[in-house]
Computed example of a mutant assay.
Amino acid sequence: MDAHRPRAVAAPGEGRLRLCAEAAGDGEVVCHGDFGPWNVVWHDDRPVGIIDWDFARPAPRLHDVAYALEYVAPFRDDAECLRWLRYPAPPDRRARVEDFRSACGLDSTVGLVDAVIARQQDNADLVRRLAEQGVEPQATWAADGLLSELGNRIDWSKSHRHLVE
């Protein structure tokens, strides 16, 4: 298939295809766009599939790596790690970033924190744009205060980068 043609991406279970309007550029792959544990199908403790490809598009590999790393490290305050993410104790984020780097085959952690912060900002911007267009569930999320929460996460990541670098 010609690398400069748009790709059709299957939306599993919905019986439709979505056209990725952007052509893949140099160094790009088709990224999931919302690659978090909630979109992984698990069998016991092993991932066996990935679902929900609504935001799939060509992008640098680091796009999905940074998005996943936000949740794997995680880039959250200790209270949220304990309450929402159900950690039994505050995580050793630096060790988790290093393990993630190694598992992904990355040579270095240099630039990963900046990539995560940029991805957090991209996500907040996307939610804002979709909410302004009246797209659901983003419009409801914005009305319920998610944009403020996302801003707080970005601020936390910027001021606590020492915990992960």
Score class of each variant (00 low, 15 high):
Met1Ile: 13
Asp2Glu: 13
Ala8Arg: 14
Val9Thr: 10
Ala11Gln: 14
Pro12Arg: 11
Glu14Tyr: 15
Leu17Ser: 15
Leu19His: 11
Ala21Thr: 14
Glu22Asp: 14
Ala23Ile: 12
Ala23Pro: 15
Ala24Gln: 12
Val30Leu: 15
Val30Met: 15
Gly33Cys: 05
Gly36Gln: 09
Trp38His: 13
Pro58Gln: 06
Ala59Thr: 07
Pro60Arg: 13
Pro60Leu: 11
Pro60His: 14
Arg61Cys: 07
Arg61Gly: 04
Ala66Glu: 02
Tyr67Cys: 03
Tyr67Glu: 03
Ala68Ile: 05
Pro74Ala: 09
Pro74Glu: 05
Leu85Gln: 12
Leu85Trp: 10
Tyr87Arg: 07
Ala89Phe: 08
Pro90Arg: 10
Asp92Arg: 08
Asp92Lys: 04
Arg93Lys: 11
Arg94Leu: 07
Arg94Phe: 02
Arg96Trp: 01
Val97Asp: 00
Cys104Val: 06
Cys104Ala: 09
Gly105Arg: 02
Gly105Asn: 04
Ser108Met: 04
Ser108Asp: 10
Leu112Cys: 03
Val113Tyr: 00
Val116His: 00
Ile117Gln: 00
Ile117His: 00
Ile117Val: 15
Arg119Trp: 01
Gln121His: 08
Asp122Val: 02
Ala124Val: 05
Ala124Gly: 02
Asp125Ala: 14
Val127Gln: 00
Val127Ile: 12
Arg128Thr: 08
Leu130Thr: 02
Ala131Ser: 10
Ala131Leu: 04
Gly134Cys: 07
Gly134Ala: 06
Val135Gln: 08
Val135Asp: 02
Pro137Val: 02
Pro137His: 04
Gln138Trp: 08
Ala139Trp: 01
Ala139Asp: 00
Trp141Met: 06
Ala142Tyr: 00
Leu146Gln: 06
Leu150Lys: 01
Gly151Ser: 13
Gly151Leu: 02
Arg153Gly: 01
Arg153Met: 05
Lys158Ser: 12
His160Gln: 11
His162Leu: 07
Glu165Cys: 08
